[in-house]
Simulated scan of single mutants.
Amino acid sequence: MNNPPDKMLEVHNVVKRYGSVTAVDGVSFSVNGGEIFGLLGPNGAGKSTTIRMLTTLTKPTAGELFVDGYSVVNDQVEVKRRIGVVPQQNNFEQELTGRENLLLHALLHKMPKKIRDARIAELLAYVGLEDRADERVRNYSGGMARRLIIARALLHGPSILFLDEPTVGLDPQTRRKIWDLILLMNRSGVTVLLTTHYIEEAESLCHRVGIVDYGKLIALDSPKKLSQNIGEFCVEFLKDFGVERHFFATRQEARNFVSGQDFDTVVRRTNLEDVFVELTGRVSKELAYA
Results as ranks from 00 to 15, higher is better:
Pro158Gln: 07
Pro158Trp: 01
Pro158Ser: 09
Ser159Ala: 14
Ile160Val: 14
Ile160Arg: 00
Ile160Gln: 00
Phe162Gln: 03
Phe162Pro: 03
Phe162Gly: 01
Asp164Gly: 08
Glu165Ser: 10
Glu165Trp: 06
Val168Cys: 03
Pro172Val: 15
Pro172Gly: 14
Gln173Lys: 13
Lys177Tyr: 02
Lys177His: 10
Ile178Leu: 06
Trp179Gly: 00
Leu181Gly: 13
Leu181Glu: 13
Leu183Pro: 00
Leu184Trp: 03
Met185Ile: 11
Met185Lys: 02
Met185Thr: 14
Arg187Met: 09
Ser188Trp: 05
Ser188Cys: 06
Ser188Lys: 15
Gly189Gln: 08
Gly189Arg: 11
Val190Cys: 04
Thr191Phe: 07
Val192Tyr: 00
Leu193Met: 15
Leu194Ile: 12
Thr196Arg: 04
His197Phe: 06
Tyr198Met: 05
Glu200Gly: 12
Ala202His: 07
Glu203Phe: 01
Glu203Thr: 00
Glu203Met: 02
Ser204His: 07
Ser204Cys: 00
Ser204Leu: 07
His207Asn: 15
Val209Phe: 09
Val212Tyr: 07
Asp213Gly: 10
Gly215Arg: 05
Gly215Ile: 11
Ile218Ser: 11
Leu220Tyr: 12
Leu220Thr: 12
Asp221Thr: 05
Ser222Arg: 09
Pro223Met: 07
Lys225Ile: 02
Ser227Phe: 00
Gln228Thr: 05
Gln228Glu: 14
Asn229Ser: 15
Ile230Trp: 05
Glu232Val: 02
Val235Lys: 05
Glu236Gln: 14
Phe237Arg: 15
Leu238Pro: 04
Lys239Val: 06
Lys239Gly: 08
Phe241Asn: 15
Gly242Val: 10
Gly242Gln: 11
Phe248Met: 09
Thr250Met: 09
Arg251Cys: 11
Arg251Ala: 12
Gln252Ala: 08
Gln252Ser: 13
Arg255Cys: 07
Arg255Ile: 12
Gly260Met: 10
Gly260Pro: 06
Gln261Val: 01
Phe263Glu: 14
Phe263Asp: 11
Val266Cys: 12
Val267Glu: 02
